[in-house]
């Protein structure tokens, strides 16, 4: 018997009896579950966009407008009110814009690859690389989030019939602020990247090995 006989046997095999039969009801059930999962993911993605992008923007803009429009306070509104309002809104816009451009670039990148096995592997590598170097987003989100976090309570103090002067606001202690900021920075720029690398680098190496295998002759 030679290889041609073997290949002939392969091509004449009866697929349905050799491999079992597909239980269509069960498969249909699996597909419905998959569909429900996809819809749920899509809903969460949408809500995530609202919560992290649109909601801070609306809250900051609302507070800013409230400061600007409230009556009877011509004598107490000072330039810092404008600065706080504008900074809060700008930070919220930056967060929303960053998230939106990030999503856009991910979509563009994913569509930039074809359907071949090589493209499939390269797409995975690109996704891992993105996850590994997402410092820009972390930095912008941290900075903008902190500005929003300060601007919103300050704006709240300044809204009302008797606005609180800046000198009488309850500012957090400098030590506590530095500690909290330090922990945030450590998490964002040290612990989280290390976790990501530990999780993703073996996968990346495996994908690279497969790409090499694909190219190897």
């Amino acid at each position: 018997m030679n290889l041609d006989d073997m290949i002939e046997g392969w091509r004449s095999q009866d697929a349905s009896t050799l491999y079992g039969v597909v239980d269509k009801d069960r498969l249909h059930h699996v597909l419905r579950q998959e569909q429900a999962k996809l819809e749920k993911q899509s809903r969460w993605g949408l809500w995530g966009g609202y919560v992290f992008g649109v909601a801070p923007l609306i809250i900051s803009s609302g507070l800013f407008l409230a400061i600007m429009l409230q009556p009877n306070d011509d004598h107490v509104r000072i330039v810092w009110d404008y600065v706080v309002g504008v900074a809060g809104v700008a930070a919220a816009i930056v967060v929303a814009w960053t998230l939106s451009t990030l999503r856009q670039s991910q979509r563009t990148r994913d569509h930039g690859f074809g359907d071949s096995l090589r493209d499939h592997l390269r797409r995975r590598v690109a996704q891992i690389d993105d996850a590994l170097r997402e410092r820009r987003l972390a930095l912008i989100t941290l900075a903008a989030g902190l500005i929003c976090a300060v601007a919103i309570p300050v704006a709240q103090y300044r809204i009302g019939h008797v606005p609180v002067p800046y000198s009488e606001m309850d500012w957090p202690s400098p030590v506590l602020t530095v500690v909290v900021l330090g922990l945030f920075c450590l998490e964002l720029f040290w612990w989280a990247p290390r976790r990501l690398r530990r999780k993703n680098l073996p996968r990346r190496r495996q994908l690279e090995a497969m790409l090499k295998e694909l190219d190897g002759q």
């Binding site: 050799l18 079992g20 239980d23 498969l27 699996v30």
Partner: peptide
């Protein structure tokens, strides 16, 4: 264990098994 695929019902061609 309860996937959409049933167990095979026929003996496989030995050539196919070998491949």
């Amino acid at each position: 264990m309860d996937g959409p695929l049933t167990e095979p019902v026929a003996e496989a061609d030995p050539r196919v098994e070998w491949l």
